[in-house]
Structure formats: structure tokens, C-alpha cells
């Protein structure tokens, strides 16, 4: 069954995919160096606005996609909150020892995880994979060999999902029970992965031959069906995060939410 995610086009879709990728990569690194929880919490609003209102996908789907990331938020922050080290105890019960320090650190980590998740999802929801690879070839000079291999590889995924279902059915019909011992799990993994891999390797090989039969070569000289350019949306995107970062820094300086400025030095 084909999986499709129909959606509206927004300005995020019109950004050059390479620009989007580079900006997001920079933000990923930047977020890594934020240690002030005031900045971190305020900064989360930026990606949240884009993710919630500008991806062009229906709100229901956005909420659905958010579920696993809320779980990531809860699990990363809670493990730090419940078991982290600290001196000023707020709550104590058996192994659980919530301190002010661990609470801040946990919240900080959780927000970092959720910012990553929102940035990543926003990118995935607003970027066509084909256009991404065309842009990487044109703007970032990626070798077409790799770009087209990736695109061909992506086509294999739905086929593999179908085969996985077929193997699952076959194992049920053949009366192979999944046992949950170490050796049982190992043999199930083998039972699924060997047929899947053998089918996929052969299919990948056949696709490669078919691509060469269509005169695909190592040469970088080729024309492009999609020509991607830079546009004002790229500037808008850069400006959005640039200005937002400045705004966050100044607000957090003047009106701090928490009395802590660095979670490492608690």
C-alpha cells in the first residue's frame, strides 16, 4: 500500500533544501553549546512555531508525530531528574532523589532533545527527498553517483516493508513460533534478515545494472530536470533563526525565568 502524506505547500517548502540543511546543522551545533536553561527554554519556541504552524501538514498529523518526541523528552529528562546527582534535595523516596540541580539539568536535557526533534521533523516534513538530492548535487556539488544511489535506495524501503509482511505471514503459516529467549530472538532476527537482505541485495544489483543500461555513468556532466536556485525564502529562513536567537539572548538576559545561568556549574 503506498504511503503518502498529502499536505499544503508553505514557505518552508520553498526554501532551498541545501540552505535548510546547512542552517539546521548549524542550529544543531549551536544548541549543543547552550548551557543556560533560560536561553534553552525560550529558544524552543522558535522551532515550535515552525513545526506547529508552518509545515503545511494537518494539525492532527503534527500531533501524532509529536507523540514519540514527547516520550523522548520525558525519558531523557526524567532519568536525569530522578537519578541525577545534586545537593539541595527537593524530594526523596528510596532510590529516587530529586534535587534542584538534577531538576534543572533534566529539564535542560529534555528541552535540547525536543528542539532537535522539532528541527528534524520540520525538515523532514517540508523537504522532498528528490529535491534535496538535486539541490545537494547543484549547490553542494555532491557526486551524482551518490545522490542517485540514495534515491534508488529509498525506493526499496516500501518494497522491503511488503516483504517483511510476507515473511511474517510465512513464518506464522509454517508454525514458527517467536520465542523470547536469547537464542530464540537471535534465530528470529536471522529468519527475517537473511531473506530480506538477500532479496534487497539482488534487487539493488539489478537496479544498478538498469541504471547503467540507461547510460548513467560516473561523469558529473549532466543536465537537471529540476533546477534549484536560491530565493528570498532562504534569507527569510536564515533571518528567522538569526533574529530569534538574538531576541532570546536579550530576553533571557533581562528577564530570566530561572535563577540559573549555567547548568554545568550547579
Amino acid at each position: 500500500m503506498p504511503i503518502s502524506f498529502d499536505h499544503k505547500m508553505t514557505w518552508l517548502h520553498k526554501i532551498n533544501p541545501s540552505v535548510k540543511l546547512v542552517v539546521l546543522a548549524c542550529l544543531f551545533v549551536a544548541v549543543l553549546f547552550i548551557h543556560n536553561p533560560n536561553v534553552m527554554v525560550l529558544f524552543a519556541i522558535g522551532p515550535a512555531i515552525l513545526f506547529l504552524f508552518f509545515t503545511g501538514h494537518p494539525f492532527k498529523r503534527i500531533l501524532l508525530f509529536s507523540i514519540p518526541f514527547l516520550l523522548i523528552f520525558l525519558s531523557t529528562s526524567s532519568s536525569m531528574i530522578l537519578f541525577g546527582k545534586g545537593e539541595t534535595t527537593l524530594f526523596h523516596w528510596g532510590l529516587i532523589d530529586i534535587t534542584v540541580e538534577s531538576l534543572y539539568r533534566g529539564m535542560h536535557l529534555g528541552f535540547r532533545a525536543i528542539i532537535y526533534a522539532m528541527l528534524g521533523l520540520t525538515f523532514a516534513l517540508t523537504t522532498s527527498q528528490v529535491l534535496l538530492f538535486y539541490s545537494l548535487m547543484q549547490q553542494l556539488k555532491l557526486n551524482p553517483k551518490y545522490a542517485y544511489s540514495f534515491m534508488a535506495g529509498i525506493r526499496l524501503i516500501p518494497i522491503m516493508i511488503e516483504e517483511l509482511t510476507a515473511i511474517r505471514y510465512a513464518r506464522m503459516v509454517r508454525g514458527i513460533q517467536n520465542t523470547y529467549t536469547v537464542s530464540g530472538i537471535f534465530s528470529s532476527i536471522k529468519g527475517y534478515s537473511i531473506p530480506l537482505l538477500s532479496q534487497s541485495i539482488r534487487r539493488a544489483y539489478r537496479i544498478a545494472v538498469a541504471m547503467e543500461a540507461k547510460r548513467f555513468t560516473d561523469s558529473r556532466k549532466r543536465t537537471y530536470y529540476y533546477q534549484l536556485h536560491f530565493s528570498r525564502y532562504d534569507l527569510l529562513f536564515i533571518a528567522y533563526f538569526g533574529l530569534f536567537l538574538l531576541l532570546v539572548l536579550s530576553i533571557s538576559g533581562h528577564y530570566p525565568l530561572f535563577p540559573v545561568v549555567d547548568v554545568r556549574s550547579l
Partner: peptide
């Protein structure tokens, strides 16, 4: 199922045309 490298019909034909530098 194993002779295409693009997800859409037009892109698949375009792939050949690109190779020929049309």
C-alpha cells in the same frame, strides 16, 4: 520493481534525459 531509481514517472524518464544531457 527493480529497474527504476526515481519515485515518480516523469522523474524516471527525466533521469535518462539527464544522462543524455538533454
Amino acid at each position: 520493481d527493480s529497474q527504476f531509481c526515481m519515485p515518480y514517472a516523469d522523474e524516471e524518464i527525466a533521469f535518462v534525459l539527464e544522462n543524455l544531457q538533454v
